[in-house]
Design a binder for these strands. Structure first.
Lengths: 342, 342
DNA sequence: TGTTAGCACTCGACCTTGCAGAGTGCTAAC
DNA sequence: GTTAGCACTCTGCAAGGTCGAGTGCTAACA
């Protein structure tokens, strides 16, 4: 039994209506509201088929149908109409672009808020994490006797810093020597290349002089590999509570627990995502069971051409996918534009 | 009518029982469970008095009594017994202290998690914000042609950095000149003193050479005055949902909305708090209406003797104040210890 | 004068019952 | 292959009844 045109139309109608109302959809509703040229009885027959094929299910005998995860999946892959943003919404996006003083964190945070207000779901955004970027500059500055600040910059413009302790006999000139050495030998070099060309040897040479040189190496590694427990920005956490499926506190709890484990949130998106398309993960397609009745819509943003982070929304599986996808796409474009204009 | 010893005992019993059960407390319960030497009828009379005095109220005629905000206030100020932490809990605290690689953000985040798990409420912590600290060191490094990173360190060990654009004709040696000048003239100087001794003049001198010198000044100001929208760390957001008063989603919503406005969360604690004691704010004593049926227990932590940030828990007004206060006190001490040992 | 027992009363929580409405599956007719 | 009709199922809701916890008041007691 294949999904002929009529079945597809019916499935589409059911998904749309359910997204709108959050109530199980009956055959009569479909006949009246969406497909006035066929009767409810016919639709009932088709619905029975669709249920057997796994695209729908019934909460109980005398209720309407609800799309299953495969139902949503088919809808997203085949039946979706592009959504468009209103002129007003487009303006709201542009406003961020033209904003003053674009400090990295603020821009991403604003983007998350914007995305959440566009979709009415909870928005997530990762801070930029350079996958395998290159060392641009390292600097060590003595801040007070016995304490120095190490600052590392990558070619993507990311910055990391850490305070380290020094033995008493080290002076700023020694630090300059070390950072000069590193800058000369490892400029524009990735972490992997560093390993090969011997940053570990440097560690041995210098290790005697700076006990905590390990921390410097670690800092470089974290920055270049993007392995730091990078920042996650959230927007509209409270908005998910508006959705009728989250009226029950127990359902919300598992999502909120995620907020406590930001490293877990990074894993939500994972590494599969290296396409420019908007990605949709529906229900249990997500690895984390905390969000097994949620869907996630995400997209990458880029910095100097390379993907460095992502934005997305998390909502119920009964999500307005068309709208969410458009909003996520536009906001990710916005971030890419902002980061590449400077 | 004054609060004689017996009334105090009864109030104490009611608050304790209500904290425990979250159910309105009846006279019989008190007589049986707490004060077996007086009868329920007597307690009823006393309770009527306590209600008239504003320490209790009744949800409806035939229900028990619930402490009012003034009831909690009197309890916290006069009737509280010190709580103690279990050996196990003390160990958990010490564990953070002895942890490796104490990166600032991680330590504070861990502290928030710890505090939340100790109390079962939501924990908040501000990142260090130096109130009026002193410039320790400024460094400007050219990262690529036309782009420089400015790094500023305060005497509290706080670090801020920002990327600025440069005109083409500026080189690293020029940047060094400028930062040398600032370091020589403003070392160990507060923002207020800088204004007096003329950082604005410097701006005029140098302004011609670096268009974006404003941003450098702004960065210094933000760091020294602690006016940056500093980081707020949260722990156990999901835990508040366990409390019976937050079974209703609408009550949770207003709290979660706070999470979206981190600058508002800073204002929760505000400036009144410059004592070393643990501070308790009950219900509408809080400025923000979002938390009008919550209580907040906070304490400062210090860095080199100066108060730089705070930790606290947010829970229902029916909070185990004794325990919360002890936990908050210990965790704030922990942070102070950690920051001062290095 | 303060304390206590007893009693009538109140109110919410909970259960049962009955009904209306929405929706289905099946069958027979078109 | 499509449709109308019908019996059946299940939820949601409102009405009514009972139970139990708790109160305020009064009268008796120490």
């Amino acid at each position: 039994m294949s999904l002929d045109a009529r079945k597809q139309k019916i499935l589409q109608a059911i998904v749309r209506d359910y997204i709108l109302t959050a109530e199980p959809v009956g055959s009569r509703t479909i006949a009246r509201r969406y497909l006035m040229d066929i009767s409810a009885a016919t639709i009932r027959n088709e619905m029975a088929d669709l249920e057997e094929m796994g695209f729908l299910h019934q909460p109980h005998t005398s209720a309407g149908r609800i799309p299953s995860e495969s139902g949503y999946r088919f809808y997203v892959d085949n039946l979706l109409d592009e959504a468009t943003l209103s002129e007003q919404e487009v303006q709201a996006i542009k406003q961020i672009y033209h904003q003053q003083a674009q400090v990295l964190e603020n821009v991403i945070q604003e983007a998350a808020h914007l995305l959440s207000s566009l979709t009415d779901y909870m928005a997530l955004a990762s801070g930029p994490q350079a996958g395998s970027s290159r060392l641009q500059k390292l600097h060590m500055m003595e801040v007070q006797k016995g304490k120095a600040l190490v600052v590392v910059v990558s070619d993507n413009g990311l910055v990391a810093n850490r305070m380290i302790n020094l033995p008493d006999d080290i002076e700023q000139s020694d630090l300059d020597g070390i950072s000069d050495y590193i800058n000369r030998n490892f400029y524009n070099v990735t972490w992997n290349q560093m390993l090969k060309s011997g940053i570990l040897n440097v560690r041995q040479d210098i290790g005697r002089r700076i006990e905590q040189f390990d921390q410097v190496v670690e800092l470089i590694q974290e920055l270049l590999l993007g392995e730091s427990t990078a920042d996650i920005y959230l927007g509209g956490t409270a908005r998910i509570l508006v959705q009728p499926e989250f009226q029950d506190v127990n359902r919300v709890r598992s999502i909120l627990k995620l907020l406590d484990h930001r490293e877990a949130m990074l894993s939500l998106v994972g590494e599969k995502q290296f396409t420019d398309n908007v990605q949709v993960t529906i229900g249990s397609e997500n690895q984390l069971e905390e969000v097994e009745n949620c869907s996630l819509v995400t997209a990458l943003y880029r910095w100097n051409g390379a993907p460095v982070g992502w934005v997305g929304v998390l909502g119920p599986t009964r999500m307005d996918y068309a709208r969410a996808m458009t909003a996520v796409r536009e906001v990710s474009k916005l971030l890419t534009d902002i980061f590449n204009k400077g």
